[in-house]
Design a protein around this nucleic acid. Structure first.
Lengths: 247, 247
DNA sequence: CGAACTGTTGAATAAGGTCAAACCAGGTGG
DNA sequence: CCACCTGGTTTGACCTTATTCAACAGTTCG
């Protein structure tokens, strides 16, 4: 129960202009906008602003009026909650294509911080609320995404409430692999843009325990760590069995 | 890690007719239907079926095609996930007025079981999907509910990942008090329709630990247990401080 | 009244946390 | 080019919290 104050720099964003060209956007095929027709997409682009964030900078803070939601275009974000004494729980990592923020809640109850240089296609809050009312396709897509997020959150409740340290790390690595695959970066070694501390705060563990479990998974031949801190899964079936508690 | 197979009877439901009169429904003011106009409400009622479930019976199962969503009218439901060896994580308790099930997911990833005699205003899956497309107010309301559920799920991730046993129980009792208040049963002692095992599975603890924490909270004068297994909060500020880790 | 549950309490154990030291890689500057 | 620093990471020794195992108490119900 050590006090670990979030060291995120309060806002370090660079405002850019509206996104140039949705057709050539890197995440066009997987983001919210997938569901939209040409004219709808054009309207959404009308309210969008591309913003850049430095690693470590705060994207939004808890208990403040919601200012934005948006799609991650590049980089990785962590979303987390804090207790008064600094205990931290990461509630999600967001990669390119992921939608960040709650489009209906007037105030956020979590913090969001850039882990790497991040580019977000930002939709300002009042504007997106208006568009939602006018574009059923957008609303439908957001409902779908919210339900998927809820599913994942419940899966994570199972992990945090009932899985062992080993099972948690295995589940985490498989989740990253799965998400990488979803955005078309399959097969390749898994990039870990977060450090041990952030993994620990996602898995409800300490950095030491996370490190020990990495060591175990390496020793048992389930994974291998490449030079640039990337993870290679060497035994997918075995790792899956561990993650599901059937090893 | 003891094997605890769910002992829910597979389906023990009684089908009734369509709900008689929404205007006099006990949960009219707090359920999904709040958002709907007269004609819309009439259409929703058109697809609704009131169903009754015995305590212990299964409302729906994980990994099966979604058959229904619905509003709890009476009684309490628990929603939970299982690991292969029987470890269980409750992901939510549902009280009168609460909406159960995911209206966009083709298959559920959790089980739902009646804890008491339960009455649900059921919306069959294909029908509700059609209605959602045709009634923006309904869709908006569902999006709002999904975002609120997600918020609660993240709060629970914080609890499961970072709170002590004592803090977890305190948070749980305050949540129940809060939900009771939301449906207009404020002030009164908190009813616990679930047993210690189910509380444990919600808090990521064992029954023994839950019991010990109850004893501690009683001893410290924060709560009192009434005859019928109801909890009276005697020191709200103190209990809140414990729940938030600032005690 | 006694069987079958559910809940409580106690003692022993283990999983993970805490504290502390060593390690390692990537920069910096002499 | 290499010693030195610095941050993150790994490893080890010990400790704490919650779990496990076991006995017991209270209720409900036949």
């Amino acid at each position: 129960m050590k006090l670990v104050v979030g060291n995120a720099c309060p806002r370090h964003e660079t405002e850019a202009a509206a996104p140039q060209d949705c057709a050539h956007c890197a995440v066009r095929e997987i983001a919210v906008c997938t569901a939209l027709s040409g004219p709808e997409l054009e309207r959404l682009r009308g309210i969008a602003v591309t913003k850049l964030y430095e690693p470590g900078s705060l994207v939004f803070a808890a208990e403040e009026p919601t200012s934005m939601v948006g799609t991650v275009v590049q980089g990785t974000i962590k979303c987390f909650k804090l207790l008064a004494d600094g205990r931290q729980q990461v509630v999600g990592f967001f990669f390119p294509g992921d939608f960040v923020g709650s489009p209906t809640q007037e105030t956020s109850h979590a913090f969001a911080e850039a882990l790497t240089p991040v580019e977000i296609c930002v939709f300002p809050f009042p504007a997106i609320q208006r568009l939602i009312r006018e574009m059923p396709n957008l609303e439908r897509r957001l409902l779908k995404l919210a339900n998927e997020d809820l599913d994942l959150a419940q899966e994570w409740m199972l992990l945090l409430g009932r899985k062992t340290a080993q099972e948690r790390l295995a589940t985490f690595l498989l989740l990253l692999a799965h998400k990488a695959k979803a955005r078309g970066v399959a097969g390749a070694p898994i990039d870990l843009p977060m450090n041990r501390s952030e993994i620990a705060d996602y898995l409800g563990l300490t950095i030491e325990t996370v490190s020990r479990q990495f060591t175990k998974l390496k020793a048992s031949g389930h994974i291998r760590i490449a030079h640039n801190n990337e993870v290679v899964i060497r035994n997918l079936e075995g790792l899956t069995a561990i993650a599901e508690g059937t090893a």
